[in-house]
């Protein structure tokens, strides 16, 4: 292993991770301090089956209940894409820890194959998403440069993660080096891009669910 690759796998990742953590802490602090949560003075209304707590749980669980929303129920392929893409992100992040700190795991061909299948599928979804973003007039109209760049960045990162998964330098180090450089860039860029949506997701879903539960809407009734 070259010094550059070692630096990229360890020191660079640690710097990037620390930077990301610092920015995230600052960002969440800003979000919680700058913006006050609304209070609800009214008595709870709606069905007694609905409460704040149930509303929050339902809202959080929504991501795993594609049948609960018309938008996911009517587009099963989009929902599958969503699941595959996010599994791919998780696997690609995990890989960036496995290679430097638990490389022996990758001695198993099955584990390598599992990483490659999940991340490869996510890479394919990334391509599909990019095509959709460019070709669908509705999505094109709402897209910003950040939207295009974020999808492109992740798709390319997935591609190199697939190549890096065997952790082999038999063909050279360029694929591993690219993967770790991209990972570091990804970690630094994420807090400033839409990819950081997962940071806010628990909050938006929490407050929406709390209000909807308190007012008798969540969990949805009947139907």
């Amino acid at each position: 292993m070259s010094n550059l690759l070692h630096f990229s796998e360890h020191t660079l990742q640690e710097i990037a991770l620390t930077f990301m953590a610092l920015v995230y802490v600052t960002r969440i602090t800003w979000f919680l301090r700058r913006f006050k949560a609304g209070t609800e003075r009214q008595a709870p209304s709606g069905s007694p089956q609905t409460t704040k707590a149930k509303g929050v749980l339902y809202s959080w669980a929504n991501v795993a209940m594609p049948w609960a929303m018309e938008s996911t129920r009517s587009r099963p392929f989009m929902y599958v894409q969503f699941v595959v893409f996010h599994l791919g992100v998780t696997a690609a992040i995990a890989l960036s820890f496995v290679i430097p700190y638990g490389a022996e795991l990758l001695d198993s061909q099955l584990v390598v194959l599992l990483f490659q299948v999940i991340i490869g599928a996510a890479c394919a979804v990334g391509v599909v998403r990019m095509i959709r973003r460019v070709s669908n007039p509705y999505i094109r109209a709402i897209s910003s440069p950040d939207d295009y760049f974020s999808v492109a960045l992740l798709t390319v990162w997935f591609f190199f993660a697939v190549l890096a998964a065997p952790n082999s330098t038999a063909m050279g180090e360029w694929h591993l080096l690219t993967y770790f450089l991209l990972t570091a860039f990804f970690l630094v860029y994420v807090p400033f891009s839409k990819i950081s949506h997962y940071l806010y997701y628990p909050f938006t879903r929490y407050y929406f669910g709390k209000s909807m539960g308190y007012r008798g809407v969540y969990p949805l009734r009947g139907g």
Binding site: L32, F35, K36, N136, I139, D147, H197, Y200, F203
Partner: peptide, 22 residues
């Protein structure tokens, strides 16, 4: 006017387009 609920809604949209034909 920006409450935490509203600010969250401002930041969190990923332009996925799932809401469009609702």
């Amino acid at each position: 006017k920006l409450s935490r609920q509203i600010a969250g809604s401002m930041i969190a949209c990923v332009h996925c387009g799932m809401c469009i034909d609702s």
